[in-house]
Simulated assay, not measured.
Amino acid sequence: MWKEIVSVTPPYQFDRVLERLSLDPLNAVSLEQREVRLPLRNQAKEPSIVTVRAAGTVDAPEFVVSGTDDQELMMEEVKRIFGWKESLQPVLDHFSKTSLSKLFEEHAGTPLVLDFQLYHCLMKCIIHQQLNLSFAFTLTERFVHTFGELKDGVWFYPLPETIAKLDYADLRDLQFSMRKSEYAIDTSRMIAEGILNLDELASLTDEEIMQKLVKIRGIGPWTVQNVLLFGLGRPNLFPMADIGLQNAIKRHFGLTDKPTKDEMLEMSREWQPYLSYASLYLWRSIE
């Protein structure tokens, strides 16, 4: 068992992080204890739980991180997931002079938190395509409960090798559509067979990743943008086709109708190069 104390550059709103993580029923979150138990995998790809507990405040953020093995690897993953290597102050300074200034003042210090693994993120994005959020969470929960692993009360997403061996009927039994079953299993087979190497994506540009992934059946621009945002933490993503984002902009700016693509493009110009944070804070405003 290992334990490490980590101090992070303020401001950092971990309680807001926990609130958002708690929306997903698969996440092991305790709002009272201000902690989350992360389903990570060690070097041997075996399930390994890492606990992250807040011990500080927004203006003096400090965390107690503990686990059982591969401390160096696990700490790198935790820092990546929670964005602890980057200061949020430049983001706040940038938006203080934009049309989203009040929103960023309200949510100041809320980081962009990543999904726990890239495969996990990709499967979640495929499952969530064209579904309302409630049923998307239900379907994802069935997927993980049926084919994933449970360890000490924490659910782990299945490995791509596990899903690659399934028949389409196995997912149809969970109420996946036929197409969604094909997309999830066929993509997992590409990963398991080494045709798609998720590890190499981090070294590619946003444009290169888009070109690479949209060639795969069932993966369109919306899915790639969400993978870039929540899988890789790229800072300048603005998925304009996202209905939630459209609704948030309509509400924030008091519009009569949802904004058009051209309107979203125009109003978002001043938010660059931090469009991902604009997206996140707008989503938060309607959650």
Rank of each mutant, 00 (worst) to 15 (best):
G67Q: 10
P61S: 06
Q13D: 15
D15C: 08
T9G: 06
A60R: 06
S30K: 09
E19I: 10
L18K: 12
D24H: 05
V17G: 09
L31D: 14
R41S: 08
S30D: 15
L40M: 01
I49C: 06
F14A: 08
N42S: 07
E19L: 09
M75V: 05
E62W: 02
D15R: 12
E19M: 11
D24C: 09
M75W: 05
L23T: 13
E62G: 06
I49R: 01
E35D: 06
V17D: 11
S30E: 03
D69L: 07
L23H: 07
T51W: 02
T57A: 09
G56E: 10
L23Q: 12
L21K: 11
P61H: 04
G56W: 03
V8F: 10
S66T: 13
V65R: 01
R20H: 14
V8C: 10
P10L: 12
R20E: 13
S30Q: 04
A55F: 05
N27C: 08
Q13G: 10
R53Y: 08
M75S: 02
T9H: 11
R34F: 04
S48V: 09
Y12D: 02
T9P: 00
V65A: 01
F63V: 00
P61K: 01
P39E: 04
E72P: 07
F63H: 00
F14N: 09
D15L: 14
E72R: 13
A44N: 05
D70V: 00
